[in-house]
Amino acid sequence: MIVMKNICKTYKVAKRNAGFKEAARSFFRREYENVQALDHISFTVQDGETVGYIGPNGAGKSTTIKILSGILTPDSGECLVDGRTPWKNRIDHVAQIGVVFGQRSQLWWDVPVIDSFELLRDIYSVPHAAYRDNLDELTELLDLGELLRTPARQLSLGQRMRCELAASLLHSPKILFLDEPTIGLDAVSKIAVREFIVKRNQTHNTTVLLTTHDMQDIEAITKRIILIGKGRLLLDGSLEDIRRGGEDIDKTVAELYRSYEI
């Protein structure tokens, strides 16, 4: 179970303006501004739930994922993931979760994918028998077969994402965080990724929290939607709640963004 309570996070960002004069001035003095990335965010996710975490760019989606996965420490607020505070006892916490960053690979570029997997097995200290079972299952569900013997640099984006998903699940985490898992994928790969996530959730009761800009991801995977903008939680409800605004979910969300002026 994930419990977030009044989580706040502020960043200090350096201003950098265009133009020769500005560049010359910032040479001597640099200005900073505070950006409120998360402003009293609270929500609870039950075991086995799938939640879509949406919002425009810079709304604070990645910050939330980073806090939940133990990378970031918030300024204030409480957070418990299966009873653990992510930013304390980092190692104990991250052993129990899986994280996929859609924009960044965790596979070693020049070696076959299977080599990366075996390294992950050692990093997470997965017993050999359990690793083999897991790998077999993931290979079948994600249709990895041939890909395992291919160096990551030769994989297409879709193939790579399938391998990334497998890599994040080799240690059977109970919770899976996905940061834009379908970004840049072609239609076929997107469907494969979505189907897999749904299946994983059904067979292993894995809790899934995913951020995305693709409303079809949301329709296919999640039952629940959390909408944030400018660091504030704007809506926490079901897909149906959003559908009330009309059948075209993209339009409705755009409408929502506008109405909250984000």
Binding site: R16, F20, A23, A24, S26, F27, F28
Partner: peptide, 12 residues
């Protein structure tokens, strides 16, 4: 060249 100089300056 001007652009180069500008980027250079930014990396004060």
């Amino acid at each position: 060249f001007r652009l180069r100089f500008l980027t250079g300056l930014q990396y004060r």
